[in-house]
Write a protein that binds this DNA or RNA. Structure first.
Lengths: 121, 121
DNA sequence: TCAATATTTCAATAATTGTTGTATAGTTAA
DNA sequence: TTAACTATACAACAATTATTGAAATATTGA
């Protein structure tokens, strides 16, 4: 991942409105939501939501697909995982022994998102 | 982690200057760097660096410690891990089966930061 | 085709953030 | 205690981002 890609992701999620939109879409999973549903859920003017969605699509943290007259938005988890990998990669370069104890936590068994390999296959 | 904490972290890392500072400090590990060393490494005016460091300390992505007349800064990896956990937690809530395939990647064996448990102990 | 609906674009304005130089405060060492 | 050094605070200005309403674009269904 390039530096500009990372800062663009950070920038888009630095807004409370956009973080709300992102988390809402994450909760919806693959189903996603159309713009009007997002606006209703978060009580946002359509114009303002459109502004923020444009930023999020540009940062590739959400995807958009036309569905007739509707636009369906979905969270792009893959992009978030690439950002995490980018940060993880940086943190270990040179002296991995310093951050390994900390970095084991997102992979710990108690995390519902990172099961041990033998549990997923 | 609270929403405001997350947006503050995203905001502080949304600046190219601050991401440079963060990654520089991450590379230094526990040793960290004093402000003047950071300014020299990144060729920044002291005033401007001070402005950005203040933001990063406020977001708790770096820590600061007085050392005589110097101020030593260090990356706070724990805070980054909490942010990752916060995002990971959100992404799996409700329908974890949708994001599990994606989320296994940062735990993959090829990642130098997330070795399998049997390799660390 | 035409009216209704969904969403975006545009323009105007408000609010926030970034950069620089100068001044200030604290620390060190002679 | 004084001169040199490190870093931050402040003020001014430049640049960017956020919000809103009005207008435009595109799709649907009668």
């Amino acid at each position: 991942m390039e530096k500009n890609t990372a800062t663009t992701i950070f920038e888009t999620l630095s807004s409370g409105v956009r973080l709300d939109v992102y988390r809402l879409l994450v909760r919806q999973g693959k189903a996603g939501l159309v713009a009007g549903e997002i606006a209703a859920a978060l009580d946002l003017p359509a114009t303002n939501l459109s502004f923020h969605l444009k930023s999020m699509v540009h940062a590739n943290v959400v995807t958009v697909e036309q569905e007739g007259r509707y636009m369906r938005y979905r969270a792009n988890l893959a992009q978030m995982l690439e950002l995490i990998a980018y940060l993880t990669e940086e943190c270990c370069e040179g002296n991995p022994e310093q951050c390994l104890p900390l970095l084991s936590s997102p992979c710990a068994p108690e995390s519902s998102c990172c099961p041990k390999p033998e549990e997923t296959q």
